[in-house]
Design a binder for these strands. Structure first.
Lengths: 195, 195
DNA sequence: CTCTTGATAGCACGACTGTGCTAGCTTGGC
DNA sequence: GCCAAGCTAGCACAGTCGTGCTATCAAGAG
């Protein structure tokens, strides 16, 4: 069996435990049980508990990024395409919801775990940077007003995206996927429309 | 000593532990040690571990609400006053930052803790409702365009507020208090200005 | 004085934790 | 055949965990 795939399997077992029982339940034993293997086997791949969480978080980021890149590379008009990329950060289906749950759990833990904090900062910087880039492109392409404060609008867009992510995640009955997409699209439209 | 004050003291010990070491470290023993008392004394006031966390979360909500009500009751022009109320949900000083840290930690845990989830839903509903109310008032007072979709703009404002809260909390060097206020004010301005 | 009630202290139990460690198994190279 | 490396299994240790429980202490009521 391929080593990379084995690590992926185990990482997804970590996810399942975190989603079902929370980060605090993601013990070496619980994850090994979930993966149907032994403590020893698990520790062969991930030496410590911290590494387990770190890898789980890394994989959330990687998956979201690769999906975002795919969406960015797709064809079609600019604005809907950018919208589709931003939507990759929202919990709109089971896959993204799983990622978002793990993301929130680890974001909270990152407040007191320096190793996770470093990882969170890097990935947050990426999304933040992309949001600013979206605004910059819209202005450069002439579809948004030229007098926009790019940095400020990037910050605001980033807040809308993560705010919607948290709300769609924690109160899905109030903010179902379709509604979240509508609100995000509306926000993007305000950057474009009012010329 | 007053019973209510004793409970408050112990609750604040819970906060300190959560802020310093995370929710997972908020054990009965750790909190008792932090409060300078014994396990038995602590359990006299809070029968279970869950109750400890529940009360900690309740108190975050209560404090933020009472500050918000004070800000709402203050005089001055409408828009800056509403802005000041919304800012009570942002980690702009040590007090609010402490609350936000506890809020994020418990919001994450609420994903797998039904009792906390119920509390979170109630308080989230309050802030969400207030955001919608802000938009409604702005429209009613004629300072915002009459053709605004009140519910959608309420949802968007709520996302901006919580998004900024998370970002100011997790990456304070990138989004310091002053900057967070600026972005929030700018968002409110977009609801008012473009007539 | 006694009696009661509220508050505090902390022991004991069984369960769970991360990690160090050894022992066994499996597979491929020679 | 044999050896080595990669992998798996799980025991052992020293902790921490939540909670049930009893014992002690302080103070007010009668």
């Amino acid at each position: 069996m391929d080593a990379e795939q084995r690590r992926r399997e185990l990482t997804e077992a970590v996810w399942r435990v975190i989603r079902r029982d929370g980060v605090q339940a993601a013990s070496v034993r619980a994850v090994a049980r979930e993966a149907g293997t032994s403590m020893g086997a698990l520790r062969h791949w991930f030496a410590t508990q911290d590494e387990l969480l770190h890898v789980a978080m890394t994989r959330v980021v990687e998956r979201a990024r690769s999906r975002a890149e795919a969406a960015a590379a797709a064809g079609g008009p600019l604005v809907p395409r950018l919208l589709r990329v931003l939507e990759e950060a929202l919990p709109l289906d089971d896959e993204r919801r799983a990622e978002a749950e793990v993301w929130l759990a680890l974001t909270a833990r990152a407040l007191v775990d320096p190793a996770l904090a470093e990882l969170r900062d890097r990935s947050a910087g990426e999304l933040h940077g992309f949001c600013t880039e979206v605004v910059r492109v819209l202005v450069a392409e002439g579809v948004a007003r030229a007098d926009l404060d790019v940095d400020l609008e990037g910050e605001r867009l980033y807040a809308v995206v993560d705010g919607l992510a948290v709300h769609a995640l924690t109160r899905p009955s109030v903010l179902p996927p379709g509604r979240a997409r509508t609100v995000l699209a509306a926000h993007l439209a305000t950057l474009v429309d009012s010329s």
